[in-house]
């Protein structure tokens, strides 16, 4: 069970959280103006990153807030968590494993 740092509540066990898929995918302002291809791209296409992956989590059994996280998919270690209204931190793949929080 991972430890995840909620940007609001701090370190909490994974069972308090739900996973929310890839982060930084914004719903188009005017979906009707998109052709089928572009809409399908938004709706279905997701990356399958090996390494640092930006993804959404929700502290569903805590403060209820969605937030974003950078997680190394090769180690399950969280490199950063940040609020929805914050930009993605620019973090390179760490050379050595990052200890958990």
């Amino acid at each position: 069970m991972l430890i995840i740092v909620c940007p609001f509540c701090g370190k909490r066990p994974e069972i308090e959280f739900t996973y929310g898929g890839q982060a930084h995918i914004t719903r188009p302002e005017r979906p009707s103006e998109l052709d089928d291809q572009a809409w399908a791209e938004f709706l279905y296409m997701r990356s399958n990153t090996k390494g640092i992956h930006a993804e959404r989590w929700r502290h569903a059994r805590g403060c209820g807030r969605f937030f974003n996280a950078l997680r190394d998919t090769t180690t399950d270690h969280f490199v950063a968590t940040y609020r929805i209204d914050e930009p993605q931190p620019q973090i390179e793949q760490p050379a050595e494993p990052v200890p958990p929080p």
Partner: peptide
């Protein structure tokens, strides 16, 4: 104070 879990209950 916080919301959390007690076994299978919030």
């Amino acid at each position: 104070c916080t919301r959390t879990l007690f076994a299978k209950a919030d």
